[in-house]
Design a protein around this nucleic acid. Structure first.
Lengths: 358, 358
DNA sequence: CACATTGTATAAAACGTTTTATGTCCTTAA
DNA sequence: TTAAGGACATAAAACGTTTTATACAATGTG
């Protein structure tokens, strides 16, 4: 553990040299053909294990290709095969917020890097992309082999675009307006909601309410749906508040100040962590005891929830699993196999002081 | 804020249909040419604002292209222009660790998503890639327009590869063995180290020591160098410990248990946050008072440092700025302009209870 | 001996662009 | 009337592959 390997290799490298002067010419399939004294078709066949070549020439070609350090050009190959070996990752929540720099929202970063790592594991290059319907997207945006769409919105135009072009995609979450679509993976948001409601009830809450985000993605929609169903079954008057996701802590503080005390809720399930933090903050400011007078829980665990005082009860999500599921579903579609989805993951509710009486 | 816009568009989409049956044929430049009754060359010229066309035909072509929804194929264009509009992002620390799933290390995720967002802002598609010298990398890996190499190692083979092929790149951090290279951006790690040492001295430390990671990147190398220089100037015996980065909290605990109490250091600057947490944990376990008997600080701020008890003093880095600097340097090289780097950012030292006596 | 079959290898078309090299028509100057 | 030039448009080459169609032996069959 203390050993220190100083592996400074003393390569002399042309560093920072003006690269323009002499363009290093690529070694192409023609070079290999010339070196091996065969046609370029033979080279292609040998390297791809196709065609009808004798074992001898096959080996000879592979050897010379290796010798002169040939590597097929990805673009030329992609053009011909119409397969590039790369997939796009589009996060519709970020698109909707119109803001790609979100300090403190580690969930988005996490999703991107997890999907990237998983894609690489399967030999696919991950390309992060913005709203595919945008005007000035990178040229490569629509040339990839498939797409993972994170948090599609209801009636999402990006999905429509991909459908029209018959480009394979899979979603994390689903488009609430497309009931028949099957290639999606998600946390079981409805079930999570029920866990929270049952917990609230056991802790003595009579009038639990829901605070969801504004955007019409499956996370918000399924949760609200589950909440309303639960209310109906329990004979409870449902009470749903909708707040712009980007309003953050301040937004929830504003909401609470407007609400309290006319409103007679005694438990709030705030889907986004920062809204939950805002509710707790505002409540304490107004002298409302949490959890004494008001129970609070949130739908996505995070540092913000864990380190708030009191610590906020939260649904602990499974980003790694859900990302892996989505990627499997995408690859399935890329290979034109029948969709095996949707795939749901059960999330675990972590009760903390914000919703534990006594 | 409470308004709820339900924008369910009632598009009927062919969802989940077997895409293979009828391959939707792409609209190509030939289709546009036919529709506008001109040659494909004319279309290309019109759409790229080149060639010698009358204003009239130019506009006519653009209109028809728009009308039939033409978009140039990125691969064909890339093949011809040898420019794809995409850049690669390679994190050598992750490569070295051989592990791309690092729970709790938000810094790496952060770098990836920040670089991605910045690249997109400039119209470049970001592609996350593993070690470019690897055997089974995605085909596209070496076909991009340029590369950002995060934390290159001393004598890094990836840089050598890029140099040989004369592919533009810029680094975050630098290769310690390549003094003349200029296209890199970084935190001013040497200066950060001095800030910590001066702080230790002011707090009464006599024998400050350094705990660095094993890998030979500029972060570790510059810090150690600065530390040794400072020690020499102060007439202090330098004391450097090297620990594998991936050993995490447990690694640092093990180190401390082996070290203490023969070792007579009274302040430790642990570069990585999890090592600092390990030191603090092990110290408290052995009844060593922090900061009473031992001062601790770390070189990269994080949740782990902030929420440790006592909270750990830390260097607060500027990932956004450094990423932006690196991207600027890369674009500079892609446009064959003279390198304007290196660019250093001064980080701020945040003293917390772990190193504040009284 | 004629004819089909098999085993190897190649020529050439195709992928969808960009760009260079030609061309045609029209105007102007000699 | 002819040459020279300008304005506009196109044909064709090129980018580097993959793949289809074709060629040419050598071998087997009736």
């Amino acid at each position: 553990m203390f050993s220190r390997v100083l592996q400074i290799s003393l390569v002399t490298r042309k560093k920072g040299c003006r690269a323009a002067v002499v363009k290093a010419k690529k070694t192409t399939i023609h070079d290999v053909a010339k070196a091996a004294n065969v046609s370029i078709a033979a080279v292609s066949f040998a390297l791809n294990g196709k065609g009808t070549l004798s074992q001898a020439t096959r080996e000879h070609i592979i050897a010379t290709a290796e010798h002169i350090g040939y590597q097929a050009d990805a673009l030329a190959r992609g053009l011909r095969r119409s397969r590039l070996g790369a997939i796009g990752i589009v996060n519709r929540s970020l698109d909707l917020l119109g803001e790609y720099f979100l300090p403190g929202i580690d969930a988005f970063d996490r999703t991107i890097s997890t999907l990237s790592a998983l894609a690489l594991q399967r030999g696919l290059a991950p390309v992060v992309l913005p709203d595919l319907t945008g005007a000035s997207i990178p040229a490569i945006s629509l040339a990839l082999d498939g797409y993972i769409i994170v948090s599609p919105q209801s009636g999402d135009p990006v999905l429509e675009l991909l459908d029209n072009r018959e480009i394979p995609y899979a979603c994390i979450g689903f488009d609430p307006s497309q009931a028949g679509f099957r290639s999606w993976a998600s946390e079981d948001d409805a079930e999570s909601c029920l866990q929270v409601m049952e917990h609230f009830r056991r802790q003595g809450a009579q009038h639990p309410s829901l605070l969801r985000g504004e955007s019409e993605n499956s996370w918000n929609v399924s949760s609200e749906q589950a909440y309303r169903t639960w209310c109906a079954a329990q004979g409870v008057q449902p009470q749903v508040h909708v707040l712009d996701e980007s309003s953050g802590v301040a937004g929830a503080v504003g909401l609470f100040d407007k609400l309290w005390p006319q409103n007679k809720t005694d438990a709030i399930y705030a889907m986004t962590a920062r809204h939950a933090v805002g509710i707790v903050t505002a409540a304490l400011d107004q002298g409302v005891d949490v959890p004494g007078e008001l129970l609070v829980a949130t739908g996505s665990d995070s540092e913000a929830a864990r380190f708030s005082r009191p610590a906020i009860s939260a649904i602990q999500l499974n980003p790694n699993e859900v990302c892996a599921d989505a990627l499997n579903l995408l690859i399935e579609r890329m290979e034109e196999r029948e969709p095996s989805g949707p795939v749901l993951r059960r999330a675990k509710f972590r009760p903390r002081s914000s919703s534990l009486r006594r």
